[in-house]
C-alpha cells in the first residue's frame, strides 16, 4: 500500500482525558440516580426513604404517581439532551435545539388537534395523534430536503415546518369550540408530567429508547463532520443516510417526548453547552453525558415544580423556559464577548 505504511504502534496517549470523561460520566450517572430518588420523595407530600419498603401508604404514592413520572422525566430529559447534542454536532451550530427542526411543533399540533376534536380525556388518542404529527414532520422533512443531505436545506425545512405547525396550532386555539378546550390546549402546550401513569410509560418509553438508539448511531459521523462536509464525505460519510437516521431518531424520540409531556424546551440547548467545557468539543464524546445530563436536569426541574407553593404546580415547560431563557441570554452575551461583533 502506498502512502504511509504502518510500522509500529504508538504508546497510548490522551488517557488522562479519557479518564476525566469517564469520571464526569460516572458523576452524571450518580447524579441521575440521586435525582431519581429525590423525584420519588419530593412533592406536596414528602415521602421519606424509610416509607418506601414498609406498610406506609406513602409507598402507593411512589408506585402509582411518582415512579412513572420519574421514569418519564429521566427518559424525556435524556432524549432531549441527546437530541440537542446530536443536532448541534450535525448542524455544526451550538445554538441548535430539537425544537428547531419542526418535529416538536408538528407533534404538538397533532396533540392539539386531538384535544380540539374532543379527545382531551383520552391520553391514548392524544399520544397517537401527536406521534402521527411527528411522523408527518419526518416525511415532510424528507420530502423537502430530498436526498441532498444538505444541512442548510434541513434547517430551512425545519423552520418552515415549525412556522406552519405553530400557525395551525394558534388557528385551532382561536376557533376552539369552547373555553374548556382552549384551556386544555394551552395547558397541554405548557408541558407537564402531572398524573402520568405506567400506561404512558409503556406507550412512550419504547419509542423514546428506539429514537435514542438511532441518534446514538450517528456518533462517529458527527465527528467526521467536524472536518467540514467535503472532508467528511471524502472519508466515506453518506450525508443523505446520516440525515435519514437523525430525522428518524428525532421523529421517534422527540415525537414521543412531546406526545407524553407536551413541549418542554431548552433542555437540548442547555445541557450540551454546560457539558462541552467539561468533556471537550468532540461531538461523539458529548452524546452520552448529554443524555445523562438531560435526565438529571429534567428530574431536578420536575421535582422542583412539585415543591412550588400553592395548590397546583408550575408547568414543567414554563419552569424550563424560566431556567433556559436567562441561560440563553448569558450564552449570547458570552458569544458576543468572545467574537468581534462589537
Amino acid at each position: 500500500m502506498p502512502g504511509i505504511t504502518p510500522t509500529q504502534p504508538s504508546p497510548i496517549k490522551g488517557e488522562g482525558k479519557v479518564n476525566r470523561n469517564l469520571g464526569i460520566t460516572l458523576s452524571l450517572a450518580l447524579g441521575c440516580i440521586l435525582m431519581f430518588g429525590l423525584s420519588l420523595m419530593a412533592g406536596k407530600v414528602w415521602v421519606p426513604f424509610s416509607a418506601w419498603f414498609g406498610d406506609d401508604t406513602g409507598w402507593w404514592i411512589i408506585l402509582e404517581l411518582r415512579l412513572p413520572r420519574a421514569i418519564l422525566a429521566a427518559a424525556i430529559g435524556a432524549a432531549l439532551g441527546l437530541s440537542g447534542a446530536v443536532l448541534q454536532g450535525y448542524l455544526r451550530n451550538p445554538l441548535a435545539d430539537p425544537t428547531l427542526v419542526g418535529v416538536a411543533s408538528t407533534a404538538a399540533l397533532g396533540a392539539v388537534g386531538a384535544i380540539f376534536l374532543g379527545f382531551a380525556m383520552s391520553p391514548f388518542v392524544i399520544f397517537g395523534s401527536a406521534m402521527t404529527g411527528a411522523a408527518s414532520a419526518v416525511l415532510l422533512l424528507a420530502m423537502l430536503v430530498g436526498r441532498s443531505g444538505s444541512a442548510i436545506a434541513f434547517i430551512l425545512a425545519g423552520m418552515v415546518l415549525s412556522s406552519l405547525s405553530g400557525s395551525l396550532t394558534a388557528f385551532l386555539i382561536s376557533i376552539a369550540p369552547n373555553p374548556f378546550a382552549t384551556s386544555e390546549i394551552i395547558s397541554w402546550l405548557m408541558g407537564a408530567l402531572t398524573d402520568r401513569s405506567f400506561d404512558d410509560v409503556a406507550l412512550a418509553l419504547p419509542l423514546i429508547l428506539a429514537g435514542m438508539a438511532l441518534l446514538g448511531f450517528s456518533a462517529p459521523a458527527l465527528d467526521l463532520l467536524s472536518l467540514g462536509e467535503d472532508a467528511a464525505r471524502s472519508l466515506g460519510l453518506s450525508t443523505g443516510r446520516l440525515q435519514a437516521i437523525i430525522v428518524a431518531g428525532l421523529g421517534l424520540a422527540v415525537g414521543a417526548c412531546v406526545a407524553v409531556s407536551g413541549v418542554v424546551g431548552f433542555v437540548g440547548l442547555i445541557v450540551p453547552h454546560l457539558l462541552r467545557p467539561l468533556v471537550g468539543q468532540k461531538p461523539s464524546a458529548l452524546l452520552f453525558p448529554s443524555a445523562l445530563g438531560g435526565a438529571v436536569l429534567l428530574l431536578a426541574a420536575d421535582s422542583l415544580v412539585r415543591l412550588s407553593p400553592g395548590a397546583g404546580e408550575i408547568r414543567l415547560g414554563i419552569a424550563m423556559a424560566l431556567i433556559g431563557t436567562p441561560f440563553f441570554f448569558a450564552l449570547l452575551v458570552n458569544m458576543r464577548r468572545r467574537s468581534s461583533w462589537l
Binding site: G89, S226, L227, G228, A231, L235, K282
Partner: peptide, 21 residues
Amino acid sequence: GYLPQSAELVWSLNARDVIAL
C-alpha cells in the same frame, strides 16, 4: 485522501483526534 481548502474545524478537537479521523 482529500484535503479540502478550508483549514477551519467546526469543533476544536485535539490534534490527535483530528488525525485519528
